[in-house]
């Protein structure tokens, strides 16, 4: 299970966000370069149709393959009151023949993207991860060297943390309080709830960059 909020940030303010995150975190920046495959189950396979995400992280010396299954969000009146989306998520590392394996189980490639950017991890009540990424489409099958940003002027920012049925309210509160630090630069909301860019971003970014330059 995970709790997640997300928002968008204009590309020109990404450096300022990085300065802010660096200041909050103390330097545990990780580079992101992930080839993501979105797969759908084939006709008549399985008792229900399903979707699966296979990620190949290319930021380390060796590619790391991970299967992700994102479940439906928590529903009901109580979840409406939460400021973050709570959803089930399962992840499992898999050997480098994972894509061929999933094809053999009847999955078909729906689409693929390349995600580039960076992430920070913060230890609060739980480890909170902030992922700042540019989403690129691939004009040809698997051609990550020819990847083109889907929205060149915008970056996706995701803030998420692992949770359980016992502690998700506490985790949501931790994420919300963390999101306040980022509020001058961007709005964070539940996935699917579009909140746009914030008017204070330019001023906040200028201030962060000038302070970073002074150090």
């Amino acid at each position: 299970m995970e709790c997640i909020v997300q928002g968008i940030l204009e590309t020109q303010y990404v450096d300022a966000l990085e300065v802010l995150l660096q200041g909050l975190c103390g330097g545990l920046r990780e580079t992101l370069k992930v080839h993501e495959f979105y797969l759908k189950s084939g006709n008549n396979m399985g008792s229900v149709s399903s979707e699966l995400n296979l990620c190949c992280s290319l930021s380390g010396p060796q590619p790391v393959w991970t299967v992700r299954h994102v479940g439906g969000p928590m529903r009901g009146a109580a979840s409406d009151q939460l400021s973050a989306l709570v959803r089930s998520i399962f992840e499992a590392d898999i050997s480098n023949n994972g894509l061929r394996f999933l094809y053999a189980l009847g999955y078909k490639l729906d689409y693929e993207i390349l995600r580039t950017g960076f992430s920070f991890c913060f230890q609060r009540v739980v480890p909170i991860t902030v992922k700042v990424s540019c989403i690129c489409r691939l004009p040809k099958l698997h051609a990550i060297d020819e990847a083109v940003p889907v929205t060149p002027t915008l970056y996706l920012v995701e803030v998420f943390a692992p949770a359980s049925a016992d502690n998700y309210a506490e985790v949501v509160a931790a994420i919300s309080s963390f999101a306040e630090f980022l509020a001058p630069l961007l709005h964070l909301s539940k996935p699917g709830v579009f909140t746009g860019v914030v008017p204070t971003a330019a001023t906040a970014a200028a201030s962060l960059i000038s302070r970073a330059a002074l150090k």
Partner: peptide, 10 residues
């Protein structure tokens, strides 16, 4: 195929 044990849950 070698996978993390979580793959069974998936």
């Amino acid at each position: 195929v070698e996978a993390h044990a979580n793959m069974q849950n998936i």
